[in-house]
């Protein structure tokens, strides 16, 4: 197992290299750079040229790539063009918020989707199952930003149950448990909005997986042994039916750092998603590249974790 993990980690290096080349090409092929949008007429053109020279933007793309690669490999992520702050500081500032939002979303998703999916699978094609299916499809087809705006409109503006933006009440100076509750109060609306969308697809998936496993011969064997229905469900059906969720979990782990670009933007949630959005709008190359690489790495790690969990959960899967 240890050998397997080491092999997989080493295998990531060439993958990341290829990804970085692709990303760099994509980032560079957008016309203009961080200074193109500076329309302030008072700024001397000479100053802008100096800045371009200073940040190495006048060099050839290939040269720029290798300079970036050399720095990145040494853990030098550069300075944001926009904020003049080290990229690592910007990310450290934001990552906590993003993880907090993502983990809350994940917990809400699992808490809702697993029971709903199982409930649905146990009553296939009944009124309640069809209702759930209908709502799942509505959830699946609703764009994130629309769901987010709708949630703000209903729950923040009309009902005033939840704040529409931010991570804490500004200037309230809460401490201890009150601070935690305040943060939860802020995270709930964006988290539930995000969760509703993934609950829809998870529910569909769990439903079909449970239905499929219920048809398996070994479930019939379990009934033939005289086990009560509940025990058959718990021991024989669910264990097998929920195993494929590990794949989803791995993908979710990978997506954790990607943040929810649109949702974070709509809810003015200061996380990585918004940082990605802002840096992309501003062509802030160092921030963009670092964030995108972070996403790539977390997706690879997420997949690795999923594979390791599979080996733990399924005796047929063995790595040597």
């Amino acid at each position: 197992m240890v050998k397997f993990i080491i092999r997989r980690l080493l295998g990531m290096i060439p993958v990341l290299f290829v990804i970085s080349v692709l990303l760099f090409t994509l980032v560079q092929s957008v016309p203009g750079d961080a200074f193109t949008g500076d329309l302030n007429p008072k700024i001397d053109k000479k100053y802008i040229d100096e800045m371009r020279e200073k940040f190495g933007l006048n060099k050839s793309p290939v040269e720029q790539y290798f300079i970036w690669l050399k720095n990145f490999a040494q853990g030098e992520f550069g300075i944001s063009f926009k904020n003049k702050l080290p990229v690592s500081d910007l990310i450290v500032d934001r990552i906590g918020n993003t993880v907090f939002l993502a983990v809350t979303t994940l917990i809400i998703t699992y808490l809702l989707a697993i029971p709903i999916g199982i409930y649905s699978a146990n009553r296939p094609y009944t009124l309640s199952d069809n209702t759930i299916t209908t709502f799942s499809f509505i959830g699946l087809s609703l764009p994130t930003f629309f769901g987010a705006l709708l949630a703000i409109y209903i729950f923040s503006i009309n009902l005033e149950w939840f704040p529409s933006s931010g991570t804490v009440t500004a200037g309230a100076g809460y401490t201890g448990i009150q601070y935690l509750l305040d943060r939860l109060h802020h995270v709930l609306l964006p988290a539930v909005t995000l969760a509703i969308l993934s609950v829809a697809s998870y529910t569909r998936y769990i439903r079909s997986s449970v239905l499929d496993v219920k048809q398996q011969d070994y479930v019939r064997t379990a009934y033939a042994k005289g086990l009560p229905r509940k025990k058959v469900m718990r021991k024989h059906v669910l264990r097998n039916a929920l195993m494929p969720l590990i794949t989803f979990f791995g993908l979710d782990l990978g997506g954790l750092f990607a943040g929810a670009v649109l949702t974070e933007t709509v809810f003015t949630w200061p996380g990585l998603g918004r940082l990605i959005f802002e840096s992309t709008v501003n062509r802030d190359y160092p921030v963009m590249m670092t964030c995108y690489m972070l996403i790539a790495i977390s997706i690879l790690i997420g997949n690795l974790i999923a594979d390791i969990l599979y080996a733990k959960a399924d005796p047929r899967v063995r790595y040597d």
């Binding site: 011969d217 070994y218 042994k225 005289g226 086990l227 021991k235 097998n240």
Partner: peptide
């Protein structure tokens, strides 16, 4: 449930799929 697997037992056609793969 008290009779199944106790007074009346059953074996099936497909031994390959009649056992739970993860137990």
């Amino acid at each position: 449930e008290r009779i199944r697997g106790n007074d009346v037992s059953m074996i099936f056609q497909e031994p390959m799929t009649s056992l739970n793969p993860v137990l």
